[in-house]
Design a protein around this nucleic acid. Structure first.
Lengths: 238, 238
DNA sequence: TTGACAGGTGTACGGCGTACACCTACATTC
DNA sequence: GAATGTAGGTGTACGCCGTACACCTGTCAA
């Protein structure tokens, strides 16, 4: 009786419900603490129940990636290639900012999921429609690398945490600790050197959005230049 | 007696020996199958013995990263910034090709290790010595992102494996499987489009070294242009 | 001789992914 | 309406993992 009521109270499991719960859980508590047991508990179900809907944990991760990638906006119609690519990549970036675990998850899988492939395919389509040769389009995709999916530089998140306590506190990073600053003077110098016109950046923090667009535009401008010069692979970019 | 002989036969443990064994083991069998127990067995020792030399597995990983980073060549003296940066990054790339587990390990740590910081600091020093403002140097480091450490695009390794069997066989990737090719026509088109002058590339494979240098030069050329224009952050790259 | 200490050992605990047998509710068929 | 198949949730158990903690042993200083 009570059991029956409890069963009725919760929605039935489904692959989709599992994936969404997994994404939400990873968003809240981080990917490293996402376990089949945790996830099952979150869904009010026994761990093995999940295996009726996903083959194993790797497939769960693939499904989570697909959920995330499907949140990226479709290409804007009727725009030139550069604008379309730029907007789409910035949309991807916004999505990945909502799911900070996703970049690592994507890079740790050694086979792209269908949604990722579809996204990449669409991106190539945009570039080809802009008049690029298949050859140059190929190189362009490589050059953009993971930036196509909206991420690039976890490396500097790491450097920014140098010498700080283990806990990943989301406070705005202040200047480097003195002992770090003296050991790595050049890093210390540029750490506070990023001046931005945008007054929304508080203190000497570094505006990640600016940095991302800086690199993106640097690449897009270089690519545009090659395109206008009818670049072929018998010549180097310079 | 026999025990004593056995003890004498093996060298005493040390942090350095542990780290080198860990790197070798990860090189051979992959980072995901590197466990404290495996590593201990490899060293002919009980798992807990390792903990007299490293605090925990995370610190072991940090140590392994430092071993790898210390293999990167020092900057070439008496060269202009562009050449110095280029050579050093290509050296980093060679190192990381020897340790394919390292990029993921580096990105998964949320705090840079001393050796990584020293490498980045030295790189900034080279750029500053080339006459860059601290401000532009900051943006440049961001723009290069993980390419500074010699890696960038695991994303495309993944895409290249689309539709293939789970085992990561190191055979040269042939054309995409037909069902993948028809679903993602643009990807299929550019997959075989990369023509390279270098005849060392067999078949229609994609020359990763070429792609890496292509992107690197694209960035370096763009950066050089900004530098020559005395770029300040009040202007966008273009 | 003694005592501290560096460093290797053994046992044990809680957490993980997941194989496998089971149960149960419902739909289908006669 | 009874029999039967099936989809999907359950319970138990196994072998891995990282590592806390108590222990032992050889070396060396006092």
């Amino acid at each position: 009786m009570a059991e029956q009521a409890e069963v009725l109270r919760r929605a039935p499991l489904s692959r989709d419900r599992i994936l969404r719960a997994a994404v939400a859980l990873a968003d809240e508590t981080g990917i490293e603490s996402l376990s089949m047991r945790n996830l099952a508990q979150d869904l009010g179900v026994v761990p093995m129940a999940l295996y009726k809907h996903v083959a194993n944990k790797d497939e769960l991760l693939d499904g989570m990636i697909d959920v995330v990638v499907s949140e990226i906006d479709p290409p804007v119609p009727d725009a030139d290639w550069k604008h379309t690519v730029r907007e789409r990549i910035l949309s991807a970036r916004q999505v990945l900012l909502r799911h900070p675990w996703a970049p690592l998850a994507i890079e740790s899988r050694n086979m792209a999921t269908p949604a990722v492939l579809a996204y990449l395919d669409s991106m190539v389509g945009t570039i080809r429609a802009g008049g690029f040769s298949a050859n140059l389009a190929h190189h362009v995709m490589h050059a953009m690398g993971s930036r196509i999916l909206g991420f690039s530089q976890e490396l500097f998140d790491a450097a920014r945490n140098a010498g700080r306590s283990g806990a990943s506190n989301p406070e705005p990073p202040a200047a480097l600790p003195p002992e770090v600053a003296t050991r790595f003077p050049h890093l210390a110098e540029i750490a506070t050197a990023a001046s931005h016109d945008d007054a929304s950046v508080v203190g000497q923090g570094c505006d990640d959005q600016f940095e991302f667009e800086f690199a993106l535009d640097l690449l897009l401008d270089g690519i545009e230049r090659l395109h206008q010069q009818s670049w072929t692979s018998s010549r180097r970019p310079g």
